[in-house]
């Protein structure tokens, strides 16, 4: 009796936390998204106005498109930069200790504060920042580059800086699992470096890329810190929109946006899972 009941007792505290602070809040977001805001507070209701507002407002639709733009750019850059880094670690670093050590070197910044990591870019990218100073002094440019900070460029740079490890780690993991004898066999059969990469390494690392992409999607879609700090006033994202709406106490509207955001995010994640089966990686 106790034996079959024991696991449930053991998982109870953790499940209770998730029930209270994850499931219940998400359900409440769904409920409140149908409520109304009367100017002071929210009032229970069943109205689709919040959703209608989202899909008919040009500003909101543009905000969503802008978020997708950030997502696409960050995804492409993290993949193109992250893959070679993971590949280098997995295939060119000779000893396991060195591989782990260099990998840890890459991960340390990701455990520290996101806010500080964003602030760190300010003295580099600002109008009088280091990059502009160096470029001006070397005579390459005569006017400071304005697009470096408080721009879409800065937002994408910041997000790549914050989140690229979430692409590198799963790719590194799947590259490390590739049976090295496969590569030796292919080489013995006369395959060149490019063919080995295309026929063996790339397909076998696809699940890693899929997991990394899922992380990037979920991180970027709700992002507002980087958009605030690096994007200046103009840059828009759904996360920032939600945060602004809460600032003016419009909880039902923010909730409706959150539901749409979650729906879109899940849709992208599911389509990634359709293309690639990641279950064997878990």
């Amino acid at each position: 009796m106790w034996k079959s009941f024991k696991p449930y007792a053991l998982i109870a505290p953790q499940s209770l936390v998730f029930a209270l602070f994850l499931i219940f809040p998400l359900v409440m977001i769904g409920v409140v998204s149908f409520w109304q805001f009367n100017g002071y507070a929210m009032a229970p209701d069943f109205s689709l106005d919040n959703y209608l507002g989202i899909f008919t407002s040009l500003v909101t639709v543009k905000t969503y498109l802008n978020t997708f733009k950030f997502l696409a750019l960050v995804w492409v850059v993290t993949l193109l930069v992250g893959y070679p880094v993971a590949y280098f670690l997995a295939f060119h670093v000779p000893r396991l200790q060195w591989q782990i050590l260099l990998f840890l070197l890459c991960t340390i910044p990701f455990w520290t504060s996101n806010i500080i990591r964003m602030i760190s870019w300010l003295p580099l990218l600002g109008r009088e920042g280091l990059v502009n100073q160096v470029l001006m002094n070397s005579g390459l440019i005569h006017q400071p580059l304005e697009f470096l900070l408080y721009s879409d460029f800065a937002v994408v740079l910041g997000m790549v800086h914050l989140y690229i490890i979430f692409m590198i780690a799963p790719i590194f993991n799947s590259l490390m699992r590739i049976d090295r004898t496969l590569i030796t066999a292919a080489a013995d059969l006369g395959a060149g470096g490019a063919a080995i990469f295309r026929e063996i390494v790339l397909p076998l690392s696809a699940p890693g890329m899929a997991i990394g992409s899922i992380f990037i999607v979920t991180l970027v879609m709700g992002e507002f810190v980087t958009v605030r700090l690096m994007g200046g006033g103009q840059a828009a994202s759904v996360g920032k929109l939600i945060q602004t709406q809460i600032g003016s106490l419009q909880y039902p509207l923010a909730a409706a946006n959150a539901v749409v955001l979650l729906g879109v995010t899940l849709l992208i994640v599911v389509s990634i899972l359709r293309v690639l089966d990641i279950r064997k990686e878990l």
Partner: peptide, 27 residues
Amino acid sequence: VIFYLTIASLIVPSILVSLGIGIVFQV
């Protein structure tokens, strides 16, 4: 179910967690 719930907690966009808890406390 519990395992996927755990994974979900990790990948649900953070702002939704914050908003959800905020709404619960408000209500």
